[in-house]
C-alpha cells in the first residue's frame, strides 16, 4: 500500500502542501494532472529522490519518509526511462539483483522469467542504443520489477508511444498486477489510459490531491 499523510514538498518553483493519498495494497492507482502540476515531483518524493519538508510517506505500512531511495524497495520507471547507456538489456534486468548479491543461477532464472514475460528475449545482449520506444519502456519496466518490489511507480509510461505499441503496453501493464501483486501508482494526463487501467483515480490540481473519476473536470 501507498499512503501519503500531509506531505509537503518544496522544489524550486513548485510546492505542494498537505498532500494526502491512500492506495490499498495490490491496487492499481492512477494519478492524473496537467503537465507541470507536480506529478513527477510527487513520484520522486515517494522514491526518496526529493526531500519531503513535512508529513509522512508509508509504503506497505512502513514509514519511509526519512529513508534513502535504496532502502525504500520501490520500483520506479521514470518518464524518460533513463536506461543505462553502457549496460546491456540483460545487465539492466539483473542490475538490482547484483546489488542484492543474488547468486548467478538465481539471477539467470529471474532474467529469463522477465525476458519471457516482457518479450525481451531477442534483445538481452543489446545496449539501449537503437531500441524502439516500446522496447525501451519494457526494459525500464523489467529493470524496476526485477527485485520484486511491493510498490511500483510509473511516470507517464505510455507517452510518446505509437498507438499499436501503446495498446501492447496497456495489455502488459494489466498483467503487472496479476504477475506481481504490486501496488501501482501510475501517473498520466490521458483520460483513456486512466479509464482502461485504474482501480482508483486521483487528481493533482493546484497542489492538492483529490480522489475522483477519470473524466471529472480538470482545472
Amino acid at each position: 500500500m501507498i499512503s501519503l499523510e500531509d506531505v509537503a514538498i518544496n522544489s524550486g518553483p513548485f510546492s505542494l502542501a498537505g498532500a494526502c493519498l491512500q492506495v490499498a495494497a495490490g491496487d492499481y492507482a492512477i494519478l492524473m494532472g496537467k503537465t507541470g502540476s507536480g506529478k513527477t515531483t510527487l513520484l520522486e518524493a515517494i522514491c526518496g529522490l526529493r526531500k519531503v519538508v513535512a508529513g509522512r510517506i508509508l509504503l506497505m505500512n512502513r514509514d519511509v519518509t526519512r529513508l534513502k531511495p535504496a532502502e525504500r524497495g520501490v520500483g520506479y520507471v521514470p518518464q524518460d526511462r533513463a536506461l543505462f547507456a553502457s549496460l546491456t538489456v540483460r545487465e539492466h534486468l539483473c542490475f538490482s539483483l547484483r546489488i542484492r548479491h543474488w547468486s548467478e543461477a538465481d539471477m539467470a532464472a529471474r532474467v529469463q522469467e522477465l525476458a519471457d514475460w516482457l518479450g525481451l528475449g531477442r534483445l538481452l545482449d543489446r545496449t539501449p542504443h537503437g531500441l524502439s520506444g516500446g522496447e525501451a519502456q519494457r526494459v525500464a519496466l523489467g529493470r524496476a520489477l526485477a527485485f520484486r518490489p511491493a510498490v511500483l511507480l510509473l511516470d507517464e509510461p505510455l507517452t510518446a508511444l505509437d498507438s499499436e505499441t501503446k495498446s501492447e503496453m496497456v495489455a502488459l501493464l494489466r498483467t503487472v498486477r496479476s504477475h506481481t501483486g504490486a501496488t501501482v501508482l501510475h501517473v498520466t494526463h490521458d483520460v483513456q489510459e486512466a479509464k482502461t487501467l485504474a482501480d482508483c483515480i486521483f487528481h493533482l490540481r493546484d497542489g492538492v490531491i483529490i480522489p475522483g473519476e477519470a473524466d471529472s473536470p480538470m482545472a
Binding site: E44, C47, G48, R72, P78, A82, F147
Partner: peptide, 18 residues
C-alpha cells in the same frame, strides 16, 4: 550525462558510490 540514470540506480538499491 543525464543525472536521471543515477537517480534510478539509487532506487534500485545503489549507494551513491555504487
Amino acid at each position: 550525462i543525464s543525472p536521471r540514470a543515477e537517480a534510478v540506480a539509487l532506487t534500485l538499491g545503489c549507494t551513491r558510490a555504487q
